[in-house]
Nucleic acid binder design. Structure first.
Lengths: 229, 229
DNA sequence: CTGCTTTTTATAAAATATTAATATATTTTA
DNA sequence: TAAAATATATTAATATTTTATAAAAAGCAG
């Protein structure tokens, strides 16, 4: 799944871009201010950013600079003034592309695709050993032991991570608390299976939108738990 | 040193491009035919290719396709016809950029620089065993065994350097203390993994701004350590 | 011997895991 | 259908584990 963040204060333009990109199966989110856009760019896990230059608050130059300092993802800068392009280049901010308004949406889509393809080409070839499980917005990077929900990283503890990873790696399979305990805890550890319940609750608190109506880990009454796929 | 190959049959244009690029300290070579250009592209080790579409013999489309099959280096395609750009895109040949003649030489230079910078950025950061690792202000020169934080050199001892280098060379990967010990200490050395902890602390004291809130080496409780990328 | 690095040891501090008690929800049974 | 029985959810207190820190001991090169 490819997530794109559009940072653009003109809502109609942002909405238009979003529509076209979604037709090409991208997941698109919009922020209207520089502050929010910068914050989410750094915190969440987007695959590409479309960045307007003129923004209320933090401007595009500064956002580009800060994002590039932290990440290598493609950044496409958008500006109404043709002169700005030279300025962006001159500053060496590390933007990957520049478009002047107005532009055709299909042109934007073409460029987005090209940048993502190149990014994949250049980064994937560098032996990536990360084992990743991804189901409906939940992404588990086993090597890095990171968990993301819709791109946002969640901090799980060791047992929480192990338990979630076990369930997510065997989706659609119902495990009793005893089975979960045997699989995740040490063989010889004598313990109460109530601790499984508590951990499930904690995981839900962290990854579920509505913890009392879980969409990832389901309770099967009288039997155990199941990761819904 | 950055080597560029220009594949272009109009000698005057090729010469002009070469002149400008050499002013920016690139090493430039020219081929006038598709055959020779393709052969050298595959055989030699260029950092970027500027490729004219209309060529006697093998045309630009075919050259682009074949080079891209073998290498990831940036390819800038040049054409006299604006319509060709859509065609190149449509074919998904994996060209990195397109320019229509006539274009200003400074424009070309700017694009060449941008593409090389991106290429370096994306390939160097992908955990390879480069001699220099650079992540968010931390620079490790493995050959010289020097460490810099925001340009300032820090004096690390042998073990500290080895441990930091190992982690930074495999960023985003969580390693247990046992794994770190096995990888950095001699196989047969019987030791306490507590020594890993102590070294981590010492490294943090030297490279972190706030040692108790580390931004390079993270602690993954109950599991080990991870170099944050 | 001397100064530096590395390792060990002990203790403090931090984070996490478990237990236990209570509340809530679901199923069973009368 | 209501009460009882059972299972899970929630919360908070307690226990355990893990790591950080500091300092001493051991090792080592000049």
């Amino acid at each position: 799944m490819n997530r794109i963040l559009i940072i653009e204060d003109e809502e109609s333009i942002a909405a238009l871009e979003k529509d076209y990109l979604e037709l090409s199966d991208f997941t698109v989110e919009i922020e209207n201010t520089g502050e929010k856009g910068l914050e989410r760019s750094l915190k969440e896990d987007f695959d590409l950013i479309i960045l307007d230059l003129m923004l209320p608050g933090v401007d595009g130059f500064e956002i580009c600079r800060q994002v590039r300092e932290a990440k290598n993802i493609p950044i496409i800068m958008v500006s109404a003034k043709k002169d700005d392009i030279d300025k962006i280049r001159g500053l060496g901010l590390g933007a990957d592309d520049y478009m002047t308004k107005p532009f055709s949406p299909s042109e934007l889509v073409a460029r987005v695709k090209a940048h993502m393809a190149r990014y994949d080409r250049l980064t994937q070839s560098g032996a990536q050993d990360n084992e990743v499980v991804e189901i409906r917005g939940l992404k588990i990077d086993k090597t890095a032991r990171r968990v993301y929900v819709n791109g946002e990283e969640k901090q799980l503890t060791t047992k929480e991570f192990d338990l979630l990873t076990f369930l997510a790696s065997n989706p659609n399979h119902v495990y009793s608390k005893e089975e979960l305990f045997r699989n995740i805890w040490d063989m010889d550890s004598i313990g109460d299976i109530a601790t499984v319940t508590v951990h499930i609750k904690k995981i839900r608190e962290k990854i579920e939108f509505d913890s009392s109506n879980p969409q990832y880990i389901e309770t099967i009454w009288g039997v155990g738990y199941r990761f819904k796929v």
